[in-house]
Simulated scan of single mutants.
Amino acid sequence: MIEATTGQIWTIILSMAAGTFLIRFAFLGFVGDRPLPNWLLRLLRYTPVAVLPAVVAPMLLGQGENAFDPLRLGCAAATIAVGILTRNVLWAILIGLGLFFGFGALIG
């Protein structure tokens, strides 16, 4: 195992902070005060729909012994059903979380 010195660790942390700032500033600082074209605004509306499944899928499917956990799959199915029926993302998330933590506490 390679050990890093305190200076190397701080260099990495500061480099990552600067890189993250520059990535965000490139969009917000340079474009933030200008109106965006309609075609770009239309495409940006689909960002949450594309990102949410990418964030949820690894947690839902799991790995090793947690793969295809019935509790997670059931709560995900209920969340999708509530989302489709109510067309309300907040209610779907709250019901899914409530079911997951509620049944998780009951099951142990």
Rank of each mutant, 00 (worst) to 15 (best):
I2F: 15
E3M: 15
T5N: 10
T5G: 11
T6G: 09
Q8G: 08
Q8R: 02
Q8P: 02
W10N: 11
T11H: 08
I12R: 14
I12W: 15
I12K: 15
I13V: 15
I13Q: 04
L14G: 13
L14Q: 03
S15A: 14
M16F: 14
M16Q: 11
M16V: 13
A17D: 00
A17Q: 06
A17E: 01
A18W: 11
A18E: 06
G19P: 02
T20G: 08
T20H: 09
F21G: 07
L22D: 07
L22Q: 09
R24W: 15
F25L: 04
A26W: 10
F27I: 14
L28K: 12
F30Y: 15
F30L: 11
V31C: 02
D33S: 13
D33M: 14
D33H: 15
R34C: 12
P35M: 14
N38M: 10
R42K: 13
R42Y: 04
L43R: 11
L43Y: 01
L44M: 05
R45E: 12
Y46F: 15
T47I: 15
T47F: 13
V49T: 07
A50Y: 02
A50P: 00
A50M: 10
L52H: 03
L52K: 07
A54I: 04
V55N: 07
V55C: 10
V55K: 03
V56P: 04
V56C: 09
A57S: 11
A57T: 15
P58A: 14
M59Q: 13
L61S: 11
L61T: 13
G62T: 01
G62W: 09
E65T: 13
N66K: 15
N66V: 12
A67L: 11
A67R: 13
F68M: 11
D69H: 06
D69S: 10
D69V: 06
P70R: 05
P70A: 08
L71V: 07
R72S: 09
G74T: 05
G74A: 03
C75E: 08
C75G: 01
C75I: 03
A76I: 02
A76C: 14
A77T: 09
A78W: 06
T79S: 11
V82G: 08
L85F: 10
T86P: 09
T86F: 05
T86K: 11
T86A: 03
T86Q: 09
R87P: 01
N88V: 07
N88G: 03
N88A: 05
V89N: 02
W91H: 05
A92H: 07
A92D: 07
A92I: 02
I93N: 02
I93C: 07
L94H: 05
I95V: 15
I95K: 09
G96T: 06
L97G: 04
L97Q: 06
G98F: 06
G98M: 08
G98A: 05
F100S: 06
F100E: 01
F101N: 03
G102H: 10
G104H: 03
A105E: 01
L106A: 04
I107P: 03
I107C: 01
G108C: 10
